[in-house]
Amino acid sequence: MKRPVFTLYCLLVYAFLLAPILVVVGASFNAGNFLTFPPQGLSPRWYVTFFHNDVFMRAIRTSLWVAAVATVISGTIGTMAALYYVQHAGRWKEAVRIAMLAPLLLPEVLTAIALLFFVYAIGIGTTTMIGMIAGHVLITLPFVFINVSASLESFDPSWDMAARSLGADRLTRFRRIMLPLIKPGVIGGALFAFIISFDTFTISFMLKGIGTSTLPIQLFDYLRTNFTPEAAAVSTVSIVLTLVVVIVSEKVLGLRIHRF
């Protein structure tokens, strides 16, 4: 492809990807009463409405909380599973991989229904958030697993042997050698987990307790009866939150790849 044609092609791809976001952000500053684009006059009034809307505020807190808990659990289990997969699974390697990726391959609604049956069968039900968090862990696990095992594959076993020869016990070797070297994979996986958990609808819809609601569900509920720019404001805030999570974790935890 010639260079100008290629550039145009790239621009179109970006436009396709980013235009919906621009429309939502634009519509959220609408001064009018209906969700339209281009906005009829500019005003932050729908943000004010949103921030004073207790239902939305509660939903956003629930979403953040569930995503944080699910990320920590999923990050831990996923990292441990990846360690087993790369270092010890032996002839079970392929089986372990398929099992770990299963939540990604199955339709989410099936996973959700199965889990719903399960939490009622074992008597937990949906009165607590345990079921929903378990669901979030389940669907985010493959992302942690994929990221961590990719960085583990490039972990040279002789680093571990060298550390052993220098007198480091198992825990020290994990903490001082392996963890820093696979950190980009762990953090990358955790970010995926957080964003997917924050964003998921189906699992939350099936497993949420009576009276609790996550942001995507609350937004869906709202849009069934209302069509105001407040919905766009909610969406914009959730985009910004996602960006903040990515940037903060990059700055604080260091997502940059080590200099090999």
């Binding site: 040279d156 002789s158 060298a162 550390a163 020869s165 050698i177 070297l181």
Partner: peptide, 14 residues
């Protein structure tokens, strides 16, 4: 209490 040198050196890259 051994000192070992590996074929690929195995220096800790970080």
């Amino acid at each position: 209490d051994i000192g070992m040198v590996f074929q690929n050196y195995a220096l800790f890259p970080h």
